[in-house]
């Protein structure tokens, strides 16, 4: 129990964290006229890589073509710079709080291997879903809700609703 108390003290109060995150999102809208995001930067990275490795393929494929026609330099985009900042910010916070450590975090009831297999599956699903849903939890759900986008509310409800529905079947992984 003591351990838990120590830990919870080291994290920010969640309501304070939420207000600070809201102010970051507000600043993004005020200065850049847009919200936060994450998956868009990964998409830019992939498109940029495919452009470099297989330019013919990128030219002949509708998906890359559509993106390249509106984004001449995929890596010089707002979200790519924001994601680089996110990594720096996360690292700084972890360093200050003494949380920098290489480890596989998992429930004591499962092995590291099982955790990593499920992490990979989850990543593939989330990556695919973020493209179909035009943005992930940050870009579509959070930023979309802040500007009252109907699509943002729908995506948010679908993400959390599905995760709640499936939670029972995957409880061994977490509790």
């Amino acid at each position: 129990m003591k351990n838990n108390v120590d830990r919870s003290k080291k994290y920010l109060n969640p309501y304070l964290g939420g207000i600070l995150l809201g102010l970051v999102l507000l600043a993004a809208n005020y200065m850049s006229g847009r919200g936060l995001g994450a998956s868009g930067a990964l998409k830019s990275t992939i498109i940029s890589s495919v452009n470099a490795i297989a330019p013919d393929h990128a030219e002949n494929s509708a998906y890359y073509n559509e993106y390249n026609s509106t984004h001449p330099e995929p890596l010089k985009t707002w979200l790519v710079f924001q994601m680089l900042g996110l990594i720096v910010g996360g690292f700084l916070s972890g360093a200050i709080a003494g949380r920098l450590k290489f480890k596989v975090e998992h429930s004591p009831k499962i092995t590291s291997k099982r955790r990593l297999i499920f992490a990979l599956i989850g990543g593939v699903l989330f990556g695919f879903g973020s493209q179909l849903g035009r943005g992930c939890t940050s870009g579509s759900a959070l930023s979309g809700m802040a500007v009252m986008s109907l699509g943002g509310f729908i995506t948010m409800a679908a993400i959390f609703g599905t995760a709640f529905m499936l939670a029972y079947f995957l409880r061994k992984n977490w509790i």
Binding site: A38, F118, G122, F126, G129, G133, C136, T137, F160
Partner: peptide, 25 residues
């Protein structure tokens, strides 16, 4: 696509425990 994409992301969340932003963090 907002519903289907969101549902697939929800499955990814409970399988993987992260969303894209939090995974980088």
């Amino acid at each position: 696509s907002a519903i289907a994409g969101g549902a697939i992301m929800g499955a990814g969340f409970i399988f993987g425990g992260f969303c894209p932003g939090t995974s980088f963090c």
